[in-house]
Simulated scan of single mutants.
Amino acid sequence: MPRSEPSKADQELIRHARVQGHTVGASQLERWRRRGLLPQPTRIYRGRHGTASVYPDGTDDLVCALARHSVPGRRSDDLALLAFFDGADVPETALKLAIARTYFNSRLRHENVIAQAMARVPEGWESALGKEYEAAEAEARTDLARGGRAVRQMRINLRRLPDLAGAPQREVDARLLGVLVGLNRLRLPEDDHEFMADLSAALAFDCAQDNDDVLAVWEYAAVSHSSQMARYEETSPEERFGLLLETSREELCSLREEVRTAVDRMWHRATWGLEPEADFSRPSMARNSAGMLMEWMSARQVQPGRVSMADRYVLSLGHLKLCCLAAERSAGGAWQHPAGEGRAGFIARTAGPRHAT
């Protein structure tokens, strides 16, 4: 508890929060200040009226954002990111630390898993396609083993193909692995018609979905193909961290709006226009958005043309669809179209004795 009565500046913050429907106490403000989530007030001289504590502009909105997302046990980094993507002006040091810890910890874990996957390839067994293919396969196997929303939905989408409808999961996953490898390569293998047919089925551009996991599929595909369309350059963690440190508060806010716009557009498209905005109130969404912000911060420097993140991802999805259509025309009668018998027919066809998941 604070040792003395809250300052007038703190009392103003508490009153503002109460008006907005949030209960915030002086001790809570003190804890947020200690954690770097609230700026320290400055003392100003008022002549005969003495001195007063004054917070920077926007602190009242920041307090409301912190209160809105504050729950017992929530980590400071998650709270900082949730408030930031809620539009609040989070102190720069706390924000950059939250972005860096979230992004680099996740990236380090991912790179360690990929390194372990590549280390399991026996010496001398490198694919005829080279180390680039082996790295893409390691990424794909890691994604498949992790089994996130995108992978689960792509597996469901692939089962729309007549020859996979009642197949065991290991057969579906073998085809899904091929799709993931192609999306993780430096360039999309557009001349591989079998791959393009499976990719088209996995992305399911041609049919309505009955859940929101299609967003995860399209986000995965958009991010992957956006990298394939860009100029390839490797950057070290040190370079990315330096870029984050050099980025101004104003530029971080601009990047935030690009990320939000990109995610909202995908969400709007994934829900077939029913929901215009994505839900940024979940810690997982805030962490993923922080990762997207970091990736785009460096990736935009090698993207062709000066486009926003949202435009780039929409363009990459559009280009993927065109690639699938071009491959279909080229394959002609050899193209394997997904079955379109509807949900009832799908359930009846996939509930037979061969179907095992």
Rank of each mutant, 00 (worst) to 15 (best):
A165N: 02
A165K: 01
A165C: 06
A165R: 13
G166V: 10
G166C: 12
A167F: 08
A167C: 11
A167G: 07
P168Q: 09
E171Q: 14
E171Y: 07
E171F: 07
V172P: 04
V172L: 08
D173Y: 05
D173W: 03
D173T: 10
D173H: 05
A174H: 07
A174N: 02
R175W: 11
L176R: 03
L176Y: 05
L176D: 07
L177N: 08
G178R: 06
G178L: 02
V179P: 02
V181E: 13
V181C: 09
V181M: 10
V181S: 06
V181D: 12
L183D: 09
L183I: 08
L183Q: 07
N184Q: 09
N184K: 05
R185D: 07
R185H: 04
L186H: 05
L186P: 00
L188Q: 02
L188D: 03
L188M: 10
P189T: 04
E190Q: 01
E190D: 01
D191L: 07
D192T: 05
H193N: 10
E194M: 13
F195R: 10
A197D: 07
D198A: 14
D198P: 11
L199I: 13
S200C: 14
A201N: 08
L203K: 02
L203M: 06
L203R: 01
A204L: 14
A204K: 12
A204P: 10
A204I: 06
A204Y: 12
F205S: 05
D206V: 10
A208S: 11
A208E: 13
A208G: 08
Q209Y: 11
Q209H: 15
D210Y: 07
N211Q: 01
N211F: 00
N211W: 01
N211P: 05
D212S: 04
D212E: 11
D212P: 00
D212V: 11
D213P: 02
D213W: 11
V214I: 13
L215H: 09
L215T: 06
L215G: 00
A216E: 03
A216I: 00
A216N: 01
A216Y: 03
V217C: 04
W218S: 01
E219I: 01
E219F: 02
E219V: 04
E219G: 03
